[in-house]
């Protein structure tokens, strides 16, 4: 059982350079996309498009650069809970501002 000696980091998941470069290429492409799209007028939808692209970019950074894809359920769940509470914070604030 490798778990018995998990304080020697030898059985960790190794991501290849190629895969990391691929993630970087996607991130650079999405950056170019968000700059181009921001110059097109969608009115109020612009900020939502920008936020969706930013969220997709963040997901790539989190899953691969930050290894979240290979982390335990504890870290995955607690991360999602953090984002969930942040959404509640922002959502309640919007209720307040929208119906003031």
């Amino acid at each position: 059982m490798t778990g018995n000696i998990d304080h020697i980091q030898s059985d960790a998941h190794i991501q290849s350079y190629g895969k990391l470069l691929g993630v970087l290429a996607i991130l650079l492409f999405l950056t170019a996309l968000t700059i181009i799209v921001s110059r097109i007028h969608f009115g109020g939808a612009n900020i939502w498009v920008a936020l969706i692209v930013a969220s997709v970019k963040s997901s790539f950074v989190l899953l691969f650069f930050m290894h979240l894809k290979y982390e335990s359920i504890l870290i995955k769940a607690s991360f999602l809970a953090t984002i969930g509470f942040l959404s509640i914070l922002i959502g309640f604030m919007f209720w307040d501002v929208a119906f003031r």
Binding site: I35, N46, A50, L51, A54, S58, V61, F65
Partner: peptide, 18 residues
Amino acid sequence: HLVDLIWIFIFPLFYLIY
């Protein structure tokens, strides 16, 4: 990476709003 993540949101919210 977290510092990078935060910038990913700062960039569109400040530089790209149109």
